[in-house]
Nucleic acid binder design. Structure first.
Lengths: 382, 382
DNA sequence: TTGTACGCGTTATCAT
DNA sequence: ATGATAACGCGTACAA
């Protein structure tokens, strides 16, 4: 059994497969009668044991350590389990073994906003990866208030969670308790938390922004507007990337003017509108715009178009995030696409290395490359 | 205590508040030593009991039933708990009381796609409502394959989940097991599953579509294109709503031509592109378009614009979902906005009525009103 | 009002 | 290879 799936498959997954693989039609349309449990819960190990005519401990072994019981006995047990429609009680198992198979995902206050799918997409990837490895996913802190933070810490300190993945958020704190103080394995995705010793999966914001700016410079652009998000790593890196490209091309840093910088990402559309207002008041107008998110880029474009500007003839625009809608705008919006799926999976890998205890000198920061997707919102000038 | 928060607050929430409210700086930066547990888990009830000089059962009572213990004793216990940084073990509690405080949310395969935020937004609302009521949220089935369905059913049959909310999905089935066969309280949100006895929270698709079509007819439109989603309730209702308005106005049903109808929602953008292709081949062109989702409406608009059509002068467009990006397109996209927040909260109410056992003749279907938001993509003709 | 003792469903240890 | 039994952390009769 183990040989088939390899040594690295968690116990509960084999367990699960054993119970349901090649499962014929067992009659479980209605709950079986005469079981040990008085209430409405399903059959127990004890019921399976009685049905199979073995001891309860043998049932446990047959399910969890199949190779440690006689093949014939194992068959009997599995048949009985199937017949009764037995499903193991994960709560009892967790209590007994001292650890759960629940991973907590800490989400930012606004799960989704604007046109981007960054958080939902990473969440999906994480869920899928964890699910394949036999873990369950609990979500927390969709709203960052006191009660939410307490919930998170209760989950962590109370032993409910086996590990935590933080998506684009700071470490939860409640009074004197901090998630960092738990022995709980933690990994951050999207935001670099390595400064506080949390392994992180991030993307190469600065580098890809340099690449993008370099490309626009190659196309003849020399003056830029950068629509900024909130102060922080992302903004610093993305803005810095443009500056790097300017320096590389021998252009002065003044050639990139900045709009925004105070509002947070969920207000991206508003930031774009405000940037449009800023733009029309500029004397020496930039020919190309970089935005810190697609929301900003899209609302900027919409507003400029309604003001009579033509995109890309008058202005070239590049967004950030790779939102699906970019491809279908008019003109299609160029954007920098993050490897969300890969980042999610990498986060899970990083976490499970720690959870399953085989993380010696593993890298503390995994940096995955984003890429510029050029579309109709950009044109060469000259 | 109870009087303050009202009778309806669940036990574990009071419990929680008791422990952390007005919580001064207790020294829990490093894990306390000399505790009963040998391993790395935190302090136990037994530790609190020893610290407070009372029996373990008194600690349990002081935390779960504060009014059933002497005020002085309670103070001692709470002080001890705070000092040690005690956090109750939810797993043990669940096992003991025979039910968990975990609600499972069954999500459709694609959590998010296109520009809409329907699922993420409902999920957020549900999470928040459940969190306030003291429940934790586990997510399942982001991808609808065999292994996911099995996970869901294990969660349900294994007693991990206390209830389930199904978002825009069918009831999970695995071999002979079905989620419907569990005693587990289930509620559906977005999709009407009342036909299979699952209480559902839906919106008035057909009615709001009639309202919208009536409005466009009032503006002078007489011929429509309906861009269809996959066959199913949503599509039937939304298409039907247009037909109702036509009949009401004495216009023949042929006045609405249909495009699409085979692809699923995640392919919305593609559907819109295909609809644009269909549109240009039509002889007697409609003047207004209704789409089954904003994705379809947006990509249709983008394609038509790139073909030289002017929106809204040549064609009026109305989407469905109320995606945030609609407001910031050029022109801004009219859309039918669903009450996602309210639907999420209603789903939680419906579920908790069942979970907490006070659901006698509660309505099996809650229908919440959507509303048409008119924007620049529509104009009057004449 | 407080303490004692048992049980929730499972796994692990120890005999056999 | 299998069976009896203790223990995981907590809640709750029941007794005091």
């Amino acid at each position: 059994m183990q040989a088939i799936f390899g040594k690295r498959l968690p116990k509960f997954l084999e367990y699960d497969l054993l119970l349901h693989i090649e499962c014929g039609n067992s009659s479980r349309m209605t709950r079986a009668k005469g079981l040990s449990a008085a209430d409405s819960s399903g059959p127990l190990m004890q019921d399976v044991a009685r049905e199979a005519g073995v001891a309860i401990s043998t049932v446990s072994r047959a399910l969890a350590n199949p190779d440690r019981v006689n093949a014939k006995t194992r068959a009997k047990v599995l048949a009985a389990a199937k017949k009764l429609g037995y499903t193991p009680n994960a709560t009892a198992r967790s209590l007994r073994v001292g650890r759960s198979n629940i991973v907590m995902i800490v989400l930012p206050g606004t799960l989704a906003f604007g046109a981007g799918q960054v958080i939902p997409e990473v969440l999906r990837a994480i869920h899928q990866a964890l699910s394949e490895r036999g873990y369950n996913v609990m979500i927390a802190n969709l709203d960052r208030d006191e009660i939410s933070e307490r919930h998170i810490l209760d989950l962590a300190f109370g032993g409910t969670a086996r590990g935590a993945i933080i998506l684009s958020s700071q470490i939860p704190v409640d009074g004197s308790r901090s998630l960092a103080d738990t022995g709980l394995p933690i990994v951050s995705v999207l935001l670099d938390l390595s400064a506080v010793s949390v392994p992180s999966v991030i993307t190469n914001d600065r580098q890809v922004m340099t690449d993008a700016a370099r490309e626009l410079i190659r196309l003849g652009h020399e003056r830029f507007l950068y629509i900024a998000g909130p102060a922080g790593d992302h903004n610093t890196a993305r803005h810095g990337g443009i500056l790097d490209a300017l320096a590389e091309a021998g252009l002065p840093p003044e050639n990139v003017v900045v709009s925004g910088g105070t509002r947070n990402f969920p207000e991206g559309f508003l930031i774009g509108i405000e940037a449009a207002r800023d733009f029309v008041e500029l004397d020496n107008k930039p020919t190309a715009i970089f935005a810190c998110s697609d929301d900003m880029a899209l609302s900027f474009m919409g507003r400029m178009q309604s003001l009579g500007f033509h995109i890309p003839n008058d202005i070239s625009i590049v967004g950030f995030d790779g939102s699906p809608v970019c491809e279908f705008c008019n003109p299609p919006m160029s954007s920098i696409e993050q490897p969300l799926e890969a980042m999610g999976r990498a986060g899970v890998e990083l976490l499970l290395e720690r959870v399953e205890g085989s993380a010696p000198g593993a890298p503390r920061v995994v940096k995955l490359p984003s890429r510029l997707v050029m579309r109709g919102s950009v044109r060469a000038i000259g």
